[in-house]
């Protein structure tokens, strides 16, 4: 089998999604049996300018990174956005809610005017280049990553859920977080995580971003039913870049 060449690139992020690839453990051996990893800075020293599939982790926060991303897009036949930072901007998008000068001032103080501290508003990968496939989540779910890779090798468009987390949460027989009077983003968030947070007793933070047609208005309306305010909901929606 002619193995497709895969390169993994990282931009602004915590590298936790790449770590999920490492966390595949034995399955990494399976992975490299069907693809050739040609560049993966976090895991190996080799570098390459030739690849079929480029996997992009992280959000884009600087003009020079936009340029690098465009170059990657030109070289790659398939470009995959890996994880919430790449697909939606992720937690880094919270920065955009502040005045950029003020943010820099706060973190760097007197040094904030230095030119190398330049930072632009956070962008998701598809705000700059065309993205062929998105693997959602913060961090990604490694089983989903594996499924997506196998689908792409097979020549099949990966089947990413477009229904709310509630579907998986119900299948896992969790007690609904709303029964505990908590604001859970499950009803408007894209499934695929197997409702991991509610299964561990926490509300859904919406890390996979909204489904294609989220009923966000209903989410605001029902806050009253649970003695909450719409602002509290919106607050939580901002964490991973929900609108």
């Amino acid at each position: 089998m002619n193995k497709p060449k895969v390169a993994i690139f990282d931009f602004a992020g915590c590298e936790g999604c790449q770590l999920q690839i490492v966390n595949m453990e034995e399955e990494i051996l399976d992975l490299i049996s069907i693809v050739r990893l040609v560049e993966w800075r976090e895991g190996m020293s080799e570098q390459s300018e030739e690849y079929d599939v480029a996997i992009i982790e992280g959000s884009i926060t600087r003009p020079q990174d936009e340029e690098k991303l465009r170059q990657i897009r030109e070289r790659a036949k398939i470009l995959v956005a890996l994880g919430a930072c790449a697909t939606d901007g992720g937690v880094n998008k919270m920065k955009n809610r502040f005045d950029l000068q003020e943010v820099k001032q706060l973190v760097y103080g007197a040094d904030s005017a230095l030119p190398h501290l330049d930072s632009a508003p956070t962008k998701a990968v598809d705000e700059i280049v065309q993205v062929d496939h998105k693997i959602y989540g913060c961090p990604i779910d490694r089983r989903e990553f594996a499924t997506v890779v196998r689908s792409l090798i097979l020549g099949k468009r990966p089947e990413i859920p477009n229904y709310p987390v509630c579907v998986e949460c119900k299948r896992r027989e969790n007690v609904c977080r709303y029964e505990y009077q908590e604001i859970c983003l499950g009803p408007i968030t894209r499934a695929g995580c197997d409702a991991r947070c509610p299964s561990f007793g926490a509300w859904c933070f919406g890390c996979r971003g909204p489904v294609d047609e989220p009923n966000a208005q209903a989410a605001r309306v029902i806050m009253e039913r649970y003695g909450k305010r719409a602002e509290d909901l919106e607050d939580r929606m901002q964490l991973f870049g929900h609108k």
Partner: peptide, 13 residues
């Protein structure tokens, strides 16, 4: 249906 999340919970349980 204005309030429906299309989450399927009613079906699944």
């Amino acid at each position: 249906a204005k309030l429906c999340f299309s989450c399927g919970s009613c079906n699944l349980v």
